[in-house]
């Protein structure tokens, strides 16, 4: 049981100057779980994902991914992560395939040309592979950003509101990619405000509020009135934390 825990976060604290955003957050994810991270605007979901992604250092507490501690063993963690953030993390003056080729080299992907072709097909951009990313629409950039994140076949996929800006087709493409990733035993943590969509996909729902995970439920234990009702109750019940002396 213990050894299948992939992400382990305990008593995580993050402050920006005097402002405490995450206060003693505990979070455990087992291999193969698909966790939807929910919470109101400003709850700290992006901040938390950036810490998991090793882009931001925790102020206190322990964070470990696949047995490697952050921030000490960050390089080992990075090899196992794929990240889709708010920004596409792509270069406008390179073509779609050049962007993937660049990131592929950074990750040391084997048989790169073949993999780039596969990924472009998967995200439906094969016909635009030689076009500059600068000329892409927002949704096309997001598709390519997803391709960039899965290029090296990461063990853990972190996604921050990946459906934003996608059209209906692209949303379905993304869902399909995510389901494929999950079906292969990969672990996914995704933030979203689209409850109806994640209710279909995730295997677990965690609500982040006031700097902690205040409620967590597995999909098979969801109450009969659905995710939205569960989410509303979770937020209502989230009592203000006892202010610890600073």
């Amino acid at each position: 049981m213990q050894d299948s825990t992939l992400i382990e976060v305990s008593r995580l604290l993050k402050r920006f100057g005097p402002k405490v955003v995450l206060r003693g957050l505990d979070f455990h994810v087992r291999q193969g779980e698909f966790v939807a991270l929910l919470g109101p605007n400003g709850a700290g979901k992006t901040t938390f994902l950036r810490i998991l992604a090793s882009l931001s250092a925790p102020s206190a507490g322990r964070v470990s991914v696949a047995g490697c501690d952050l921030p000490r063993q960050a390089t080992a963690v990075r090899q196992k992560l794929g990240v889709v953030s708010h920004l596409p993390l792509l270069y406008g003056d390179l073509t779609a395939e050049e962007n993937l080729r660049f990131y592929g080299r950074m990750y040391g992907v084997d048989a790169l040309e073949k993999r780039v072709g596969e990924v472009l097909t998967l995200v439906g951009l094969t016909s635009r592979r030689r076009d500059l990313v600068r000329t892409f629409s927002r949704g096309m950039q997001q598709r390519l950003a997803i391709g960039r994140a899965i290029l090296h076949d990461p063990e853990v996929l972190l996604l921050d509101e990946p459906h934003t800006g996608l059209d209906q087709d692209a949303c379905e493409m993304l869902d399909e990619v995510l389901m494929q990733v999950a079906a292969r035993g990969r672990t996914v943590v995704m933030t979203s405000h689209d409850l109806a969509r994640v209710e279909e996909m995730a295997s677990r729902f965690d609500v982040l509020s006031r700097g902690r995970i205040c409620s967590s439920v597995r999909r098979d234990a969801l109450p009969p009135d659905g995710l939205l009702a569960f989410y509303r109750r979770a937020l209502a019940e989230a009592t203000p934390p006892v202010e610890e002396a600073l």
């Binding site: 992604a53 882009l55 990075r78 792509l90 990131y103 950074m106």
Partner: peptide, 14 residues
């Protein structure tokens, strides 16, 4: 500006 610095920093390289 386009967040690419994050993209570089996410890579498992020195």
């Amino acid at each position: 500006d386009r967040g690419c610095l994050d993209g570089l920093l996410l890579a498992p390289v020195d």
